[in-house]
Design a protein around this nucleic acid. Sequence first.
DNA 1: GTTATAATAT
DNA 2: GATATTATAA
Length: 313
Amino acid sequence: MAVSEDFPVGLRVMVVDDDPVCLLILQRMLHQCRYRVTTCSCATQAYTMLRERQDTFDLVISDVYMPDMDGFRLLELIGLELDLPVIMMSANGETSLVMKGITHGACDYLLKPVRIEELRNIWQHVVRKKGTFDFNRDNCSIDWDSNKTLVEVQSEDHGSRKRKGNIELSDAMIEDANSLKKARVVWSSELHKKFVNAVNQLGIDKAVPKSIMEIMRIQGLTRENVASHLQVVDGSWKCEDKRRIRDEQMHLIISGKESTKGLVFQLLIVEFVLSKVDHCHYFKVGDAGDPFWNVLKVGVRLSSQLYYESLCN
DNA sequence: GTTATAATAT
DNA sequence: GATATTATAA
């Protein structure tokens, strides 16, 4: 099964960095990976917290250079007492530094700026270290609200504003962080599956946002969220190049219906078809120039035989 | 509840 | 900067 299907939602990550901008960025990216994030701007306090609240973190990401405590020292302490996987992070990628990280027991070394792709796989360190990770732990509630999980510990006089030239940017972004809008709902395949289940359960006629929402029972998910999703359908679908349709590599199996329910109906058919096919891409077409802008056309690439079968169903 | 459009994210 | 995804207004 593809890794993405079983993505470990809720991995509890502690990020330590004296630079608030980095913290914020990391936090956002980790949230996108659907991890639970705690940030800390001061290594000493991070250490205290980690020790006091053992078993509430799965992984630590720490900067190398910090005013109050060297990242390597923190790494050492954690390795000594806590046995948590630690990832070091720095803008400095000198071999000697990386080596130092590894020899001190870091399980990875991320170079700043960190890309989200690199973060998607960090959970594997936890699996590797612990041998397992409970994928289903707390799978139902999604980390919408960063403020809930964000533990900001600011050190008093060790500043973030060490580097000149960065000051303005930092302040602007901190400001931004304070007014951080709630995270947008990400319609992951899991969430979408629940959506589809709810729709199926209700039947197409009764599948309206409110009812769907109630059946889904996802904390924080609003009727509007569902309505929006209902309107446009699955956000996690791969959008394939339209060229491929022209090239007739794909068959359009369903052309648009007018209403929202039409869309859901199509969706259900597509899911049905997909359940019978191993390797196919699905995608949606439609652009603003199209007079049927919100008429979604769903295509599936599959053998012509299946194509015809699907039309019969 | 639905649909159109605005706002974000990629 | 275009396009895709989600939020919000109508």
